[in-house]
Amino acid sequence: MTSELAPSPLKLANKRSNEDRLFRGVTRGAGLATFVILALIGVFLFIEALPAFRSQGWRFLTNTGWQTTGAHPQFGVLSALSGSIIIAVIGLIIAIPVSISCALFINEYAPDTLLRFIPFKNFLTAAVDLMAAVPSIIYGMWGFFILQPHMVGLEKWLSTFFGSLGIFQNTSGAYTSSFFIAGTIVGIMCMPIITSLCREVFSLTPSGEREGAMSLGASRARVIRDVVFPFSKGGMIGSIMLGLGRALGEAIAVAIIIALAFPLNFHVVQAGGNSIAALIALQWGAGGNLGTSALLAAGLVLFILTLIINMIASRIVNASKMAGR
């Protein structure tokens, strides 16, 4: 039999109405706009950062100082980049367990009503969302004036008993304005994002699976471990990555707390540190044209870092979706 006799698939066409065409155009435009804006930001940062890159070359990634004026400017993003990562990691270490526990409490344990008339669950949910709405400058000030004095004791304890671990070492005797305090504040700021997304995901757990487990004699804790968590894995990772995005990008709260210091520093309970976003916030307008270009170059590094993290995150989320379902 020749192939000409075999039926070829019909090319399906559909006549669209004007309404449909208009709607399609608007949504498509909005969809493409995200790509365009993202690309424009990248291109803008790159062009503006060129003078800084020309001045320092690859050393921009390995230098730790920030001397942008004078005959021999020397600056680099290394300490700021490592500082951003340290703060974000501390923030997530604090935020993840608290947020997931909080989301579980709201979803699994909290009573709908308290004293029969207070809508407790809704109150809690609203409170968490409200936490996300508090401006970061408020967190920064609260962290500086209220939290910081109370953290010093804990930091001293950490450095006394775990100082030998290196990261908790304190060589200066000054405990305020440290990575640890900045990270704690950033963690508190990440909590509402992670909590409310996790709560959303947990609540989507199919009731069939949940009841199936309960009917076999599973306790609530078992149901959470063996039904809710496996189902929510992808969403939980996604929410943590969004939290990480905020942690890496937080500028004002960190800028208020941290004492800007350029040497590479891994002593988290010691005064002095650096972060890209705080660096930009604190140095903006200083250091002349090259200074501005250097800050934009640092911004570009942060931009690329968050892009990479987000891509990895979506890979993980997709992979866990495949495995889970």
Binding site: G208, E211, G212, S215, L216, P230, G324
Partner: peptide, 15 residues
């Protein structure tokens, strides 16, 4: 655990 149940819609643990 002592009084088991089978539901209307099959609900094995998919993962």
């Amino acid at each position: 655990r002592h009084i088991g149940m089978v539901f209307q819609r099959p609900n094995p643990f998919p993962a």
